[in-house]
Design a protein around this nucleic acid. Structure first.
Lengths: 151, 151
DNA sequence: TGTATATAGATGCATATGCATTGACATGCG
DNA sequence: CGCATGTCAATGCATATGCATCTATATACA
């Protein structure tokens, strides 16, 4: 598997491109959402995770891990989303320290509204410039990368 | 080349992984720099670009494009870097609106000091989990992606 | 030439993020 | 049980980023 010692030119270039591609792509997607008058991307991620949790809701610390967010950032993100009425927080019954986050109907509606715009932006950003073989290669390599970073 | 309409499952997964891989990798690299008591990654990028410009220096608007930074963010980044004495700014002789950014010796020293830490972090993050074939595939796919996003 | 428009860069103000700490409860262990 | 230690979540304060605007100069063109 791995290489060792100092990074090869290809590794360095791949690194630089990872940063650059993500920045460019993310900027386009965020711009599409903003242009449509919708909340930022991270709200979508949060709403999706929370909606998936269903009736039982999710604990913030679970969201924190799923979304790779720092605890204080998640706490404040939830403040903002709750303030717009898309979620509700209540005390966890089985853990006096904890909270339960649940979707509201308004939140479900917003997530549904965001998806088409988001999906179109993803397709524009990824699908437009890559063949399906390239997408598969990218997906595979990123999968390995994530696996390596998560372990 | 491209696909059309709604994004396929693979496109969506590749998108999600692009975000996730970049976040994980970047967090590791930033942590390595911080642990070594060094400035954040973006300072390295700036110092490298400015050093490359040599004696003649660079105009901020050129850096802005090279680094994909918003104008006001670059302006303030340069404030901070200048405040540490790593660069100098002066009025551009041939354009009364403009400035010239130049490296100081202290700045060169800092960039040199950062590189080994940064390089080791890149190697750890990319090289550790991917074979050189996978790195090449990733690099190639990201290259196409960037090309598509830049055009 | 004179006036409109565009570009370079800085900055006030609002929002978001990072860091450190706190308050509240849970868990482990003598 | 009683205390030390760990975990969950929120928050005060500092720093960074986004947005809108401003100043100054350059460029285009009537």
């Amino acid at each position: 598997m791995a290489m060792s010692g100092k990074p090869s030119e290809t590794v360095i270039r791949a690194w630089a491109r990872l940063l650059r591609a993500q920045r460019l792509a993310l900027a386009d997607v965020e711009a599409a959402l903003k242009k449509a008058g919708l909340p930022p991307l991270i709200w979508y991620d949060a709403l999706l995770e929370i909606e998936r949790a269903g009736e039982n809701g999710v604990r913030p610390f679970e969201l924190e891990r799923a979304m790779l967010l720092a605890q204080y950032n998640l706490s404040r993100l939830l403040d903002r989303i709750e303030h717009e009425g898309y979620i509700e927080r209540e005390a966890a019954r089985d853990d006096g320290r904890g909270r339960i986050v649940r979707m509201t109907e308004k939140g479900r509606a917003m997530r549904r509204k965001m998806w088409p715009v988001y999906a179109r932006a993803i397709e524009t950003v990824i699908g437009r410039s890559l063949t399906s073989e390239q997408v598969a290669a990218l997906d595979g390599a990123l999968g390995s990368l994530i696996e390596g970073l998560t372990r």
